[in-house]
Design a protein around this nucleic acid. Structure first.
Lengths: 205, 205
DNA sequence: GGAAAAACGTGCAACGGCTGCAACTTCGCA
DNA sequence: TGCGAAGTTGCAGCCGTTGCACGTTTTTCC
């Protein structure tokens, strides 16, 4: 990796961490792009060559991890059952959305408290679901499309609701893990009742 | 209803229909508040005393219907099972989100095609779900909170996914009704497996 | 019917997010 | 060492959104 790329990455992180720190200190809408730029020692104009919008700084890390999940989803072993694939993705999702470090905690709090950020988080979750549905339709082309969409909506919906609940109740990492495990147990019982999801692959045609 | 209120309502409708017409003709971001105000024959400033933001015009009708649902949810007969209540709400939701008239079709297309409006639609759906969870917790206080949240996430998630699919595939009203009925059948099978949802009420304590 | 009070519409000025453009600077590569 | 690509910056400007102050309409109360 050349000097140029390293520098870009450093600047990106500088902007992101400055932004999160300021959001935490004075609030999201009380912080301007100029403030962030000044704190990260770049020009306001430069902010937008790193992040497409102010909101996106909050989701930057999450988006990277979601992109990872999507990439790894494509490399799924072909003998894996859809249900097993879902388990992997669900675990990765919980991981991607959870946040261990301090910045992560700030992100979670921001998303919890701002309706417009909540909406964007929901959109990202829905996009992840959609990606999974696409893969599922590749695996099980015989499965009715409405059923596939609904069943995945059920699975992701249950998981999302549990995570949202944990956030709202300010659960710590342990209780969140416990709650999501519980939610996944409920959800997987549903998935197991769909035959197409528990057989490795359809080798039709 | 006095003259004042009638006039306000008329202005509100004028702004909304002018906005939707312009969105349809030239696109959402290509239409400015000034354009809308001019078409509705009010000052640009006045737009914001009727709608809090440009986006909200798109959701104005939907929000009214969602408020209705929420209000009627409070008047639930106390001997109704949670499952039956869900059925009523689900039907009303499908109705609220569907659109019969021409403006409705424009709204649906806008929401389908603009990611930021999609996000806001998801938020509204999630809020409806949350409202239902609150009611459920009043009905069945013995039900574990995480389970309650998850089960409702499952139910609303499945329904939402089916509706989204129908939108994406540009299903007409009939096929949409059919698909949502199918989705509701799947979802209700899940709900029936939760004992607390099929008994009229807990008369504990 | 008329005056005071409340509600409403409007223009103005301003802020902040965001973008296109045209320099200017820095870096990678030969 | 120099050339081209990539990155940075300031500027000007659009648009959504808001607070404020002023004038007008409607309601209310006598």
């Amino acid at each position: 990796m050349g000097l140029r790329e390293r520098k870009k990455l450093r600047t990106r992180r500088a902007i992101a961490s400055a932004a999160l720190r300021l959001f935490d200190e004075r609030g999201f809408e009380e912080t301007t792009i100029s403030d962030i730029a000044a704190a990260a020692d770049v020009s306001p104009r430069t902010f937008f060559s790193y992040f497409p919008s102010k909101d996106d700084v909050v989701f930057a890390e999450m988006d990277e991890r979601l992109a990872d999940i999507r990439a790894r989803l494509a490399e799924r072993p072909s003998d894996e059952t859809p249900l097993a694939t879902f388990r992997r993705v669900a675990d990765a999702l919980v991981e991607a959305i959870s946040a261990e470090d301090e910045d992560g905690a700030i992100q979670v709090a921001l998303i919890r408290d701002r309706p417009s950020l909540q909406a964007q988080a929901l959109k990202r979750f829905a996009d992840a679901e959609e990606g999974f549905v696409e893969v599922l339709r590749g695996i099980a082309p015989d499965l009715d499309a409405v059923t596939a969409a609904t069943v995945m909506g059920v699975a992701f919906g249950g998981l999302r609701a549990a995570i949202t609940y944990c956030r709202a109740e300010r659960y710590d990492a342990d209780r969140t893990r416990e709650a999501t495990a519980h939610a996944l147990a409920i959800v997987e019982k549903v998935l197991e009742s769909v035959p197409a999801l528990t057989c490795p692959a359809t080798d039709a045609h």
